[in-house]
């Protein structure tokens, strides 16, 4: 009996961990989808060109160091296109002190309003007025806010860059596919238009079932 008990305890903790990961919207390394299972062409037609010296936070903002301790922050390609084209509605005001995890941008994919969180602590120096409700053609050239912050230079290892960043964004798109399968109103239609042709369409707007935007924020925009 003791043998069964100890074994059951061991397996119980493993299972609980899998459940916890499920709640956090993360994958266990053993059950992470690998690329070969998916249509690679999807990525080839949507080339991920990642600019140099740019870091990516888990909340789908990008960061770039400028002189004098300034950090430019914008929303990455994934954030700009995930559920359709993102319209930025609001961003933090100049002069405000921001903590990591505070809201930096508010945007909307159609009716789905989402919040992007600040990846670093800092003080907002400048806000780019040209992003509010504008169509942004190159997300990596258009920064949203400029923060005065030391966090980035000291914590490079917290962010993705280079190849790591490419792989991570690929994984996020794969995750998005399964997210849409379960959360979009017309999953079949979504699957056909977006993925079967092997192209990610920016023109497609997804209507999510009730409350899914908070799930989306939890799974894709949390730090």
């Amino acid at each position: 009996m003791v043998a069964i008990f100890v074994l059951a305890a061991f397996l119980f903790f493993i299972l609980v961990d899998l459940v916890v990961l499920k709640f956090q919207g993360k994958y266990h390394p053993a059950f992470e989808p690998s690329f070969s299972q998916f249509d690679i062409s999807m990525f080839e037609t949507n080339k991920f060109t990642i600019p140099q010296n740019t870091f990516f936070s888990k909340g789908h903002t990008w960061l770039k160091e400028e002189k004098n301790g300034l950090v430019n922050i914008g929303i990455d390609e994934f954030g700009m296109t995930a559920l359709g084209t993102l319209a930025i509605l609001n961003c933090a005001l100049a002069g405000k002190t921001i903590k990591r995890g505070d809201i930096l941008f508010e945007g909307a994919y159609g009716n789905n309003k989402v919040k992007f969180l600040s990846p670093v602590n800092g003080i907002v120096q400048t806000v780019n007025p040209n992003i509010i409700n504008k169509n942004i053609s190159d997300p990596y050239k258009t920064w949203g806010v400029q923060l005065l912050s030391k966090d980035l230079s000291e914590n490079h290892e917290k962010f993705y860059s280079g190849n790591d960043a490419v792989n991570w964004i690929k994984k996020e798109f794969i995750k998005l596919k399964s997210f849409l399968d379960t959360h979009a109103l017309k999953p079949n239609l979504a699957g056909e238009t977006m993925f079967d042709g092997g192209t990610l369409s920016n023109d497609m707007l997804y209507s999510l079932v009730d409350k899914s935007t908070s799930d989306f924020e939890k799974e894709f925009l949390s730090l």
């Binding site: 009996m1 003791v2 043998a3 100890v6 074994l7 397996l11 493993i14 053993a30 992470e32």
Partner: peptide
Amino acid sequence: DKKWLYIISICVISGLILNRINVSIT
């Protein structure tokens, strides 16, 4: 395969847990 390797390692560890408890208690 990373998924199966994980499951296999859990199996072998379970086997050792069972064996040692079986010897010392069961």
